[in-house]
Design a protein around this nucleic acid. Structure first.
Lengths: 106, 106
DNA sequence: ATGCAATATCGGATAATCTCGATATATAAA
DNA sequence: TTTATATATCGAGATTATCCGATATTGCAT
């Protein structure tokens, strides 16, 4: 009985959790702004947090949260950490969300 | 200086708020389940809340929240209230979110 | 090793969310 | 008008989120 190449068929519970965690991560204006500020490319925390206007510790925690939600990637660059949007699929969802918002508010 | 048919050009602040409110509304497993249960069509609260397994008052509040976030529509039908997904654009966003989740977890 | 700059973590204060039971309101029917 | 059903609102306790300053850690250069 072939069912595709997935051994453990996608658990609905896990799927639901992942989706709510995704939404929770973007349910805060600061975090959404951080993500939006990465649409044009990779940036380090040291660039992000002064322009956000929140303490370094808060922005650090927010960035970790966004990474845990699979929304951002991190990589080291010497003493810094560079953050970027995890996958092109995230771009697509963000774009469709922006469209939904503008059309709904229009 | 023509700028399209929108008098007050879309305020970024309002847009950001709407988007975070949208995500917040879907950041709870119960609320996401409620929305998903409406994918097949309109239903009343009296159908929804027993299968959700939460108190009537909680589900009532959640439904109002989803309406306020422009995710659901309501209409009266006698003593009941029928809820449905607000627009087809919501369907599209939900579908793209489902795809993102399954692909990310795969 | 020492110092510096970037990032992470901890403890805590305040605010928001979740959820309930109890109660109030609204609609329709008898 | 009274009753029954569906929905809404209130008050409260438990949990979680938000944010900070202080402190720890990490990696690089000197």
């Amino acid at each position: 009985m072939k069912r595709g190449r997935c051994e453990t068929p996608l658990n609905d519970e896990k799927l639901l959790r992942w989706r709510t965690d995704f939404h929770k991560a973007l349910s805060n204006p600061i975090r959404l702004q951080i993500v939006e500020s990465l649409l044009k490319g990779e940036r380090c925390q040291c660039e992000i947090f002064p322009e956000i206007g929140l303490s370094q510790s808060s922005v650090s925690a927010y960035l970790s949260q966004l990474v845990r939600a699979d929304i951002l990637n991190v990589r080291r660059d010497g003493t810094r950490k560079l953050y970027s949007i995890a996958t092109s699929r995230i771009f697509r969802v963000l774009a469709s969300m922006h469209d939904l918002a503008t059309e709904t508010l229009a």
